[in-house]
């Protein structure tokens, strides 16, 4: 009996090293970041709000922030179009095919983002695969400029972020009770009706998780944004990088970082809320 009382406490001590590590190297730096953002000068001597007021009063900054969040939304939408067919294929597949599909999802996931970005430089160039495909299908008459455009960036990010959308979606599909689908069909609902009324609603929690991951990752996808987007399209991560490492304006870089975290958290909160109310609708 005595062992039962002391055991949980003794075991809890094992979390101490990780707590200490996170406290020192995760929580402390983030608190410092917030603190630094409330200074007016690059030397961090005069406290004040000028970084935030400066950021918010400049239309250029708003455009960069808006462009970044919008990029995330567009990438999420495009990724959805690719992710659902694969997830539904996974749902219909037997155990062996499911394993093959999971391995196929792993290949791009474990391949460096830089490598995948590099692939899209080749694919999107004037003589690249995408252009020759568009030409041979007669969709365009002459090669179109895709590199250094937002469209090219969205196409590339759609593939680069796809595994992040698929993992939570596929895990929901794996747990989906096959009897529910069978019941829907036995009751006379066709395949399309079953998809819209049963499978899609049940997959929403996984989809919401995927949306969060893709949104957070594509708004922060620095390498793709700078290499494929080119110099004319500026997004928040590059903006932070310029301020921190080439201009050494830490308070401003810190303020932009805090604003980026807040903006992403706000969107994440919204998505979570939507996901929860959608789940409520299914069961209630």
């Amino acid at each position: 009996m005595a062992a039962r009382v002391t055991m949980p406490e003794g075991r809890f001590m094992l979390a101490f090293p990780m707590l200490l590590f996170f406290g020192a190297f995760f929580v402390a730096p983030l608190l410092l970041l917030v603190a630094v953002s409330f200074f007016d000068d690059p030397d961090i001597t005069v406290p004040g709000l000028s970084q935030y007021t400066g950021f918010l009063s400049d239309a250029f900054n708003w455009r960069v922030l808006g462009q970044t969040l919008l990029l995330g939304v567009k990438v999420v939408a495009c990724t959805t179009l690719l992710a659902y067919p694969i997830a539904l294929l996974f749902l219909a597949a037997g155990p062996r095919l499911r394993r093959v599909l999971l391995m196929l999802i792993l290949v791009p996931l474990l391949t460096s983002v830089v490598v995948r970005t590099f692939a899209w430089i080749v694919l999107l160039s004037r003589e690249g695969v995408v252009n020759s495909l568009l030409l041979s299908l007669g969709i365009v008459g002459a090669p179109v400029q895709l590199l250094h455009t937002e469209l090219g960036l969205i196409i590339a990010l759609m593939q680069i972020e796809l595994p992040l959308m698929l993992l939570p979606l596929v895990s929901v599909m794996a747990r989906l009770d096959p009897n529910v689908v069978a019941a829907s069909q036995a009751l006379g609902a066709g395949s399309w009706r079953t998809l819209v009324r049963v499978i899609l609603p049940l997959s929403l929690p996984g989809y919401a998780a995927g949306v969060l991951l893709v949104f957070a990752s594509s708004t922060a996808a620095f390498v793709s944004q700078s290499v494929i987007g080119g110099g004319r399209l500026i997004y928040m991560p590059l903006f932070v990088y310029q301020q921190a490492t080439t201009l050494y304006n830490w308070p401003f870089a810190a303020a932009i970082s805090v604003i980026l975290v807040l903006a992403i958290s706000l969107v994440a909160f919204g998505i979570n809320h939507l996901g929860r109310s959608a789940r409520g609708n299914i069961h209630g």
Binding site: F25, L33, A216, A220, F222, V240, Y241, T245, W250, S257
Partner: peptide
Amino acid sequence: VTPLMLPQISFAVAALVF
């Protein structure tokens, strides 16, 4: 598990300053 959801760039700036 929070670091998964946080934009890495924000943590990177924080770590640099820290």
